[in-house]
Design a protein around this nucleic acid. Structure first.
Length: 484
DNA sequence: TGAAATGTTGGGGCG
DNA sequence: ACGCCCCAACATTTC
């Protein structure tokens, strides 16, 4: 037993269980100084958005409480982690800093720089894995290249990756004799004040490790068996709703993978659903794999040909999309769900994404930026890879001619119109076939309802049929350009 | 994890 | 009974 403390630097691993860095620090026998650094410098333009900050506030509150229960504290510091961490290490005379590896390009830079700076003071930086199932830098094709296609990536990942039994949370933390001071969480002003737009978020989320584990259990019990079909139904609770918890690391992907595997082994009815769920987790791995090997993924098209794509700048239509005022019910429902709850059903993300990029010809980066600010699960790798996928500019992307028809998608995946009715109340009076196409002359609206509807719900900002043709013409120009 | 256009087939109405 | 047409249903191709 030594008195020289070690630092546990919490990052996107805001949990106590299945936390290799925390466990390693505790097992070293040294006193532990847990710290979280609010770093709005290193990420550059990718500082967490407003919805993420709301989530972060809540989760730090919970983490601090959990640490208190086992005898610890959570030291809050603000600033550039490359300076804050070495300063803290000097302050407490730490011998080592333990953390979980992050995969954003800026975060990797921070790790490299910190490693050098700390080494000069004789402090070791121990970056352990914890966020992903597999080190994205290690998976390679037979030719030694990184993967660009999901299916072979999935094959390799699912064959080579064995989920392990999650590590238990430490029972007890030993603090140094004089733990360092830190900020008050409230000083960081992560919560919205005027206006307080977080009411809907508070109602539908329980940020924190306990909430995450509860959600995972709820999903495994109730959702896994019918996941394969239900996950495409935005009107139902068919998805896992784990994305924000996974992003902030309140639950590890390993723990999810492991639990789903156990469930599927115990109950054959859940086998198919479990595989579908694992494939979703694998998309998260794939996105990170792409980001690690193509650090420009969030900013520039993966396929170079798209640099010359004739995008349009249209502030009014972008605004209509953001506010859920496009006149296409399924699109507006999704955008309003996002605004109200900080989350959007995955099927609907594809629909609204296709609409922005193909119907409106607005650059995918605009959608990426809006999602970044409004999603509680905003994640650099997933967000960038998914937007490039929709736009057709990404690796293994949807081909340029794959254009979603918002009405058809709505009829197929929200047949009763439940989802639309929930988020577009102006249309709540319309019944099933009509609610997908309020603009259609055949749509049966009687009497006063007609007036009310015509006044309150907008006309489509573009005609989809014409927009589709226009998009195909725009993409036509790229066809001669060789694929990357 | 697309949709539309185009092609094919086969049942049934009808002269 | 037969040929013809229509069209729904399904399959293929095209974007």
């Amino acid at each position: 037993m030594t008195d020289t403390p070690v630092i546990v630097w919490f990052r996107q691993d805001l949990r106590l269980s299945d936390h290799r860095a925390l466990t390693a620090a505790v097992e070293s026998g040294a006193p532990v100084v847990p710290v979280y650094v609010l770093d709005d410098v290193s990420p550059g333009r990718w500082v967490p958005g407003a919805a993420s900050r709301w989530w972060l506030h809540n989760i730090l509150e919970k983490l601090e409480r959990s640490l208190n229960i086992i005898g610890g504290v959570l030291v809050l510091r603000r600033g550039d982690a490359r300076q804050v961490i070495p300063r803290l290490a000097a302050e407490v005379s730490a011998s080592a800093v333990f953390c979980s590896r992050c995969y954003e390009p800026w975060a990797s830079d921070v790790e490299r720089k910190l490693d050098q700076v700390l080494a000069k003071d004789g402090v070791a930086l121990k970056c352990l894995s914890g966020a992903l199932l597999h080190d994205p830098a290690q998976l390679r094709t037979r030719a030694g290249d990184p993967y660009k296609v999901y299916t072979p990536f999935w094959r390799v990942l699912s064959q080579n990756c064995e989920a392990t039994s999650p590590l238990p949370a430490p029972k007890r933390l030993t603090l140094p004799a004089q733990p360092p001071e830190g900020d008050e969480l409230a000083q960081w002003q992560l919560l919205p004040t005027h206006p307080d737009w977080a009411k809907g978020l508070r109602r539908c989320w329980q940020p924190g490790e306990a909430g995450a584990l509860k959600q995972l259990a709820h999903f495994l019990d109730g959702g896994l068996e019918r996941y394969t079909e239900q996950r495409n139904r935005p009107g139902q609770e068919g998805t896992s709703r784990l994305s924000p918890h996974l992003h902030f690391g309140e639950v590890s992907a390993n723990a999810c993978w492991h639990a789903a595997g156990l469930r599927s082994a115990a109950c054959s009815a859940t086998e198919a659903g479990a595989t579908t769920f694992l494939k979703q987790l694998a998309w998260r791995e794939f996105s990170n794999h792409l980001l690690v090997h193509w650090p420009k993924l969030p900013d520039a098209p993966f396929r170079k040909a798209f640099s010359s794509f004739p995008w349009r700048a249209d502030a009014d239509q972008l605004n209509a999309w953001q506010r859920g005022l496009t006149g296409y019910p399924i699109v507006d429902a999704g955008m309003r769900e996002l605004w109200a709850t900080g989350w959007m059903h995955n099927r609907v993300r594809m629909i609204v994404g296709s609409f922005l990029v193909k119907d409106l010809l607005i650059p995918w980066q605009e959608g990426e930026a809006w999602f970044w600010d409004t999603l509680v699960d905003a994640d650099l790798a997933n967000n960038a890879a998914s937007w490039q996928w929709v736009a057709g500019s990404g690796a293994d992307a949807a081909p340029y001619f794959r254009i979603f028809n918002p009405q058809t998608q709505s009829e197929k995946f929200d047949p009763e119109g439940d989802y639309i009715r929930r988020w577009v109340p102006e249309l709540a009076g319309l019944s099933a076939p009509d609610i997908h196409k309020p603009w259609d002359p055949s749509t049966n609206i009687c009497g006063a309802a007609t007036h009310k509807l015509r006044n309150s719900y907008c006309k489509p900002v573009v005609d989809h049929k014409q927009a589709r043709t226009r998009a195909l013409q725009a993409y036509e120009k790229l066809r001669d350009t060789p694929q990357q």
